[in-house]
Design a protein around this nucleic acid. Structure first.
Lengths: 339, 339
DNA sequence: AATCTGAACGCAAACGCTTGCGCAACCAGG
DNA sequence: CCTGGTTGCGCAAGCGTTTGCGTTCAGATT
């Protein structure tokens, strides 16, 4: 039925071990014999069974990638870039999409990944228990999001600094009532919302602007959430003249809410986002850009080098550059008085 | 080091075979013995090695998913939905991201998927050779995009009908010069661009509008491509008063080009897209919606049923409903004469 | 001519699990 | 008491690789 290594061996008149060595480029096989074996394997259409070889060797040549939501732009883009690196190096990727709490719980209790991967790239932030579970796998670990973790190779950005540059931009334009659309840290345990919030707080404090808790609204890092949050802010007695959305998706939701309220951007309200979503340029959103795909690539590469040379300890966190992008959704506050 | 089935067997005082049967719910084990074994396994933190079990049984409990671009909204969304179904049923998913021609070629020649999966869901359209390669795997196949293929379970939409409703909408508004931003079929071999184009042609013919080849521009199904294509169309001696973009991403690119040209939408030019991208509502894009996640779920489910009950022949193609969504980017043609 | 050295290759034992078959022990029916 | 049929479990043979070690043999070294 299916062609195995012994078929190739018989076809060439050698032993299975020689075929194995020849096909994997190990020494101990003469060049001409190797050529014959390779030819025979090609003709028979032989591919080594991964199950069998990983059982025998312990190496799986597979990387586990766990992400909270594949469908979201950020994660999809990171995954895309990382997968390209892995597959180019001959590794397959096992994908775990842990959006729902049930899926997440199922994953971390059953740990289906065990004995199936050589390394794992986690795009979600495990809580301490989950981190321990991952560490117990005994393979190299990496992440592209949310702060350092012992045992993890992490590549990320300066979330706090990025938020600062976004909010400072608004302050420099003359805004004093600056709202923030944030996301909860909790369901995902990530620190991004906290870091970005800290940047917001820093700048307000630095500018001597008193904090108004009512100006913070939860947008859950989604478009709809951003729209809801903006609607809440607009319902305030003194609505903000500008808002900093912690993600471009939420910023776009905010834009939509503003349009529904017949408010003009940036004349009536300024909006600045974060991430530089692929469609942000389309809507002219002012934002702070982070190299999303590059982070995925870098994390993947670091993981592979850690895998090949196990001598190296987990390298220091890598910080990728960010940059503020001025587009068309920010302007000085409108001169007319608040209604 | 790592706990194996014999460890559990020794801990319980039974044979490995009994442990295997107990843990997988097979008959031939008394209930109390099963309970003891399950308890011991849990205490030891035992998980069966997938490599070993799939080597022994032939079943891998893994589904291969091959996609052209994980990072793009459509594919990311389908993948997200499909993965949820697979993992809920205890299957892992092996992801292959075949965006570049090299990656694609590497995949189809080496076929790393062989002997590693129980089924494959392909979100790209294989050319005849590639389809043959997939068929040679001898496992159930499914796809969510682009026309029927022998051996494939396909779930999709009526691309032609959807395009017709979009273009007919423009015709009904009174437009006569209607441009189309399309995508090449070639690099991906998919039929979607062809089907949608056919819908465009149908309606024009039906309305007695003479075809002008200059009104078709290639947007490559990307935002930037859509922008380029729209720019081309605007450079025409007689630019269109409306355009049908074969995808929302391209439509958004078109919107951007129009804004750059200081043209107003829909007053100066109408734009209608296709797909109902998650951000289309944000920009108010008139479009025809397709149930993207639902297609992924459905394809995944069909694949699994085919897998569990091998009796069934590959079911008939499933067609999911689409619907036209009127938003704010379309209006009757402007009364002023063409410059 | 005897010895040593690699190089090239085969043997066989894992790797951790599944599964057909065999073998007790038990139960009910004659 | 002896059958015939269950039920519960162990034996052992795989599944397709990898790999340490042993063997052979040609050529180089004494």
């Amino acid at each position: 039925m299916t062609v195995s290594i012994t078929d190739v061996a018989e076809a060439t008149g050698v032993s299975a071990s020689t075929v194995s060595r020849a096909l994997r480029g190990r020494s101990g096989v003469s060049e001409q014999m190797r050529a014959r074996i390779v030819a025979a394997a090609a003709e028979l259409g032989y591919t080594a069974s991964r199950s069998a070889s990983s059982l025998a060797s312990g190496r799986t040549y597979t990387i586990g990638v766990v992400v909270p939501y594949v469908g979201r732009w950020f994660f999809g883009t990171v995954l895309d870039a990382a997968e390209k690196v892995f597959s180019a190096e001959g590794y397959d990727v096992l994908l775990y999409n842990l959006g729902s709490p049930e899926a997440r719980k199922r994953f971390f209790t059953k740990l289906p990944i065990r004995k199936r991967v050589d390394a794992v790239l986690s795009l979600l932030i495990p809580d301490p228990e989950e981190a321990a579970a991952l560490c117990s796998l005994g393979v190299p670990l990496a992440t592209t999001v949310g702060g350092a973790r012992p045992g993890f190779t992490v590549v990320g950005i300066d979330d706090r600094g990025g938020a600062e540059s976004a909010v400072r931009h608004l302050v420099n334009l003359g805004h004093r009532r600056i709202g923030m659309i944030s996301g909860a840290s909790e369901p995902l345990h990530w620190t991004t919302p906290l870091d970005r919030r800290q940047g917001y707080l820093d700048v307000l404090a630095d500018a001597g602007i008193e904090l108004d808790p009512a100006l913070e609204a939860d947008g859950g890092y989604t478009v709809e959430g951003g729209e809801r949050a903006m609607t809440e802010l607009l319902a305030l007695r003194h609505p903000p003249t500008a808002v900093f959305a912690q993600s471009d998706e939420m910023a776009m939701g905010a834009l939509r809410a503003l349009r529904r309220h017949r408010l003009r951007v940036p004349e009536d309200v300024s909006v600045v986002g974060f991430d530089d979503h692929e469609l942000s340029e389309v809507v002219g959103l002012t934002t702070v850009a982070q190299p999303v795909a590059a982070q995925g690539r870098e994390a993947a590469r670091l993981l592979l080098t850690r895998l090949e040379g196990p001598n190296a300890v987990s390298p220091r966190p890598v910080e990728m550059p960010i940059r503020f992008i001025l587009r068309e959704t920010t302007a000085p506050p409108h001169a007319r008085r608040q209604r």
